[in-house]
Amino acid sequence: MNSRVVKIAIPVVGASVLLVVAFVGWFVISAWWSNPPPVLGFGEGPEQPIAFPHTVHVSDAGLDCQFCHRTVSTDEAATIPAVAQCLFCHGFDKIDGRLSTSETAQEELAKLIADLGEPQQPINWNRVYRLPDHVQFVHAPHIQQGISCSTCHGEIGEMQVVKQVRNLKMRDCVDCHRDNGAPTDCSTCHY
């Protein structure tokens, strides 16, 4: 009777220990080598409240990134433009939208107007890029040094849905800083 219990117990315990060790090993290896978990927009990229196509605006209309993301060369964040700035091109009072003729565009524009509500609220875009809280990243010096947006953000102009293309782990930042002679002092980013 006893020996039968032991006979069953040994492989069960052995298997569970192996499982735990394998899980820890897998966790460590994947954390070291892989990208951060895909919750932040790797792969498909998060769905946005309005299907804003960068393809149309950047590749077709030929807008510069800074036309909409205005504070990128002076401030910490590139910032997402206010709806008023969309209005600048799309006259919303005329629902036909001067520069948008496709049906999808009509739908999305109508959604945009409906979403604004009264009083008008900003759109709740879903975040695509997120850095940990202990990293202080400032866009301005990177732009001022002539680093192009696509270095980190990829070819946004060819993305129907914006997704994260670089993992932006510390090794990624430090490698680039070394290559470009930028400071690698910890307190450059961590404070």
Partner: peptide, 28 residues
């Protein structure tokens, strides 16, 4: 303050001479 990390439990902290202000002033 968005320029300063919120420290979690279990880490040491101390005066930084307001390094966030130094970084902002010397950025250019």
């Amino acid at each position: 303050n968005p320029d300063v990390t919120v420290r979690t439990r279990g880490v040491m902290e101390k005066c930084t001479f307001c390094i966030q202000r130094i970084r902002r002033a010397t950025r250019g």
